[in-house]
Design a protein around this nucleic acid. Structure first.
Length: 575
DNA sequence: GCCGTTTTCGGCCCGACTGTTTTCAGTCG
C-alpha cells in the first residue's frame, strides 16, 4: 500500500514538474518520501481516523489527504490519470537514465515522441537526439551509456557490498601524504539497507593530487565528472563514487552536508535561515555587514554547527528527518546502542543443518569477534531441505553442545533452535523438548502467500506458546528480492508486548528484518529486540554490524536490546 | 500543496559540474 502510493505520488510530482508547476512537485515528493518509510499502512491510518488522521502525517494537508483517500477507495488518483493521458510517458523508466530530468523528458516526448526506454534507445542509436537544440553528441552518448548500464545493473547495492568497499577506498586515501583526513558519508554512513553510491570526503590542500589518485584507482571504470572540489567516477562493480575535497575549516560542514539525507539537510538549513544564518557544505555563515563578505561562525566540526543552531549532535543513522531534528532541538535524542555493545548472538546455524561450520568452529569464530556467548539455533524438521532437527536429534545436539562447551573456553554456548511455525501456528517441536532449550526462536519458512489475517493469526498463536522466546526475522522479507509476507505488524507488536516475546532484528544483509521503522515502532510499544547475525558460516558474525545499524536507525538504545546483556541476565529477560 | 512562538499569506535549501553555451539551463545530490 504505502510503497505503491509513494510511487504514484512521485510520478505525480514529476508530471507536475514537466508541466512547469512550481512548488507542488516538492510537496508531493516529500510526502512520497515520508509515506515510503511510514511504519503503519495509510489505509490502516485512514480506517482508524479518516481524513483527519491522514492530515496528521507530516507533509500531508487537506489536498493530499483527499488524494490519499481517493487512492485507498479507488486505487487511483484522478489527477494523475488525467496527467498521464496528457503525457503518456513511462516517467519512472526514463527518470532512471542519467542526465534526464523533467525538462529533457518533456522535450524528448514533444519533439521526438519518445515514451519509454525502448524508444529512447532507438532514437539515440539513430542519432536523433544530438540534433535537438541544447543536446549534442556527448549527451547522446551519455544517454546510450546510461541505458546500457541500466540493462546491466538493476537496483541498488547492499550495504554489505558497499560498506567494506567504501572503507577500503577511505583507508587508501588516508595513506596519501596529501590527505589530512578522510571519511565516508552519504547513505552508507546512515547505514541504509541499500545504497546507490559511495560518498567520500577528504581534507587536503592539494585537491588535484587527490582527485588524480582517485580516478586512477583500479576499481574505477570511468570518470563521469572531475572538478576542483568534486569528482565522480563509476566503479567496475556498477556503483558510482563521489569524492569531495574541502579545507579543514569546512570539514564538519561538509560532513554534515553529505551525511544527512536530503530532507534532514533541508530541515537543518531552514533552521539556519530562521536563525539568520546560511548553511552550506563550507560552513555556517552570517552576514558580516560588509558587502559580499560573510562570516563563518562554524564549520570545522559537526558538533559546533549543530550547537550553534541550538541542537544536539546526532548520529549519522538518525539523519533522515524522522523526528530527530525536533528531538535534537529539545535535547531529547536517544542514546543509541553502540557498535561495540553486543555481548552475544542468538541466532547461529551450524553444519547440523544448513550451516557451513561445526558448533565448535562457530563458537571459536564468535569469540574471535569479541562475543561472550552464542546460541545454536539450527532448523527443525519441517524444513526438511536443511536436514532440520526433530526432537530426538535436538536432544543429541544438546549433548554435543555440552561436550563442545567443555573443550572451548571464553565463550558460552547456549542451546536453542529455530523452530518452524506450522501453517496453523503450532510449533514444529513438542513443548517438552522446547522447555529444555535455553532460547527458542520461532519463524515462518513456508506458505508466504497466506492472507494478512491468516498469517497474523498464525504468528500470534505461535508467539503465545510459553516456550517461544524470540520471533526470528518477523516479516520474511528479502531485501530487493522478496516482499514481506502480509502481516498486521501492529498486532504482532501488541502480542509481543503481551506475551513477553522478543522481536528479532536479523542482521543478515539480505534480510535486515525487522527493518528500521518496525524496530522503532516495536520499541515505542515497549517491546525488546535481539540483534542476531543468523550466521551460516564463521565469517558471518561480522553481519552484526548491519543489524546494529538498522537498530540505530530505529532509535534503539542499549537497554532495548537483550543481547547487550551478559548471558545470565539475557536469559532472565526471556519467558 | 504545505506550513507557521517572528507569518493563516507568502514564502518554499544550496552549490558543483556538464554541455552547449557566449552567460546559463539542466541535472544531481
Amino acid at each position: 500500500m504505502n510503497s505503491d502510493l509513494s510511487k504514484i505520488l512521485n510520478e505525480l510530482a514529476v508530471l507536475l514538474d514537466i508541466k512547469g508547476v512550481e512548488f507542488k512537485p516538492r510537496a508531493y515528493e516529500k510526502v512520497a518520501y515520508i509515506i515510503e518509510s511510514l511504519a503503519e499502512e495509510v489505509d490502516e491510518i485512514y480506517k482508524k481516523g479518516g481524513l483527519k488522521a491522514l492530515e496528521e502525517i507530516p507533509g500531508v494537508g487537506r489536498g493530499i489527504a483527499e488524494k490519499i483517500e481517493e487512492f485507498i477507495k479507488t486505487g487511483k488518483i484522478h489527477e494523475l490519470e488525467k496527467l498521464k493521458t496528457e503525457f503518456p510517458v513511462d516517467i519512472n523508466g526514463l527518470k532512471k537514465v542519467e542526465g534526464l530530468g523533467p525538462k529533457t523528458i518533456k522535450r524528448l516526448y514533444n519533439e521526438l515522441g519518445i515514451k519509454d526506454l525502448g524508444s529512447l534507445k532507438k532514437a539515440a542509436e539513430a542519432g536523433k537526439l544530438k540534433k535537438l537544440e541544447g543536446l549534442g553528441e556527448k549527451s547522446e552518448q551519455k544517454i546510450l551509456k546510461s541505458i546500457s548500464f541500466l540493462e546491466q545493473f538493476r537496483g541498488r547495492f547492499s550495504i554489505a557490498a558497499a560498506l567494506p568497499l567504501s572503507r577500503r577506498i577511505v583507508e587508501r586515501l588516508r595513506s596519501l601524504p596529501e590527505v589530512k583526513k578522510a571519511e565516508f558519508a552519504g547513505s552508507i554512513a546512515r547505514m541504509q539497507e541499500t545504497v546507490g553510491d559511495l560518498d567520500i570526503l577528504v581534507i587536503s590542500d592539494k585537491p588535484s593530487k587527490v582527485m588524480d589518485f582517485f580516478v586512477k584507482m583500479p576499481e574505477v571504470q570511468e570518470v563521469t565528472a572531475k572538478g576542483d572540489t568534486k569528482t565522480s567516477v563509476r566503479l567496475k562493480v556498477g556503483m558510482d563514487a563521489d569524492l569531495r575535497v574541502v579545507a579543514p575549516e569546512s570539514f564538519g560542514a561538509a560532513l554534515q552536508y553529505f551525511i544527512g539525507d536530503k530532507y534532514h539537510n533541508i530541515a537543518v538549513r531552514e533552521i539556519a535561515v530562521k536563525k539568520g544564518y546560511k548553511l552550506n557544505e563550507y560552513g555556517l555563515f552570517e552576514e558580516s555587514g560588509i558587502k559580499n563578505h560573510e562570516l563563518r561562525v562554524a564549520g570545522e566540526t559537526e558538533e559546533e554547527i549543530y550547537k550553534t543552531l541550538g541542537m544536539q549532535w546526532m548520529p549519522s543513522e538518525m539523519r533522515t528527518d524522522h523526528g530527530e531534528i525536533e528531538a535534537a532541538l529539545q535535547n531529547k535524542l536517544p542514546d543509541l546502542v553502540g557498535y561495540e555493545d553486543l555481548k552475544g548472538d542468538l541466532q547461529v546455524q551450524t553444519d547440523w543443518t544448513d550451516g557451513d561450520n561445526s558448533i565448535r568452529e562457530m563458537a571459536e569464530a564468535a569469540k574471535k569477534q569479541g562475543l561472550e556467548y552464542i546460541c545454536i539455533t539450527d532448523h527443525t524438521a519441517a524444513l526438511a531441505m536443511t536436514g532440520g532437527n526433530d526432537e530426538k536429534r535436538l536432544l543429541k545436539q544438546m549433548a554435543e553442545i555440552d561436550k563442545v562447551q567443555k573443550e572451548v573456553s571464553g565463550i558460552k554456548i547456549l542451546k536453542g533452535a529455530e523452530v518452524d511455525i506450522h501453517k496453523d501456528g503450532t510449533l514444529d517441536i513438542d513443548d517438552e523438548t522446547l522447555a529444555k532449550l535455553d532460547v527458542v526462536g520461532i519463524s515462518v519458512h513456508s506458505r508466504f502467500k497466506m492472507t494478512e489475517k491468516e498469517m497474523t493469526k498464525r504468528i500470534v498463536r505461535a508467539m503465545e506458546n510459553p516456550n517461544a522466546d524470540i520471533l526470528f526475522h518477523p516479516t520474511g522479507r528479502l531485501v530487493q528480492k522478496r516482499e514481506a509476507y502480509k502481516i498486521d505488524m501492529a498486532e504482532i507488536i501488541k502480542t509481543a508486548k503481551k506475551t513477553g516475546t522478543i522481536l528479532e532484528a536479523n542482521a543478515y544483509p539480505e534480510r535486515l528484518d525487522l527493518k528500521d521503522e518496525y524496530i522503532r515502532q516495536a520499541l515505542e510499544s515497549g517491546v525488546k529486540i535481539s540483534i542476531d547475525s543468523d550466521a551460516h558460516s564463521t565469517s558471518h558474525f561480522q553481519f552484526l554490524e548491519y543489524g546494529i545499524g538498522q537498530a540505530r536507525r530505529g532509535w534503539a538504545e542499549k537497554k532495548d536490546v537483550i543481547n547487550t546483556r551478559n548471558w545470565e541476565e539475557m536469559l532472565g529477560l526471556l519467558k
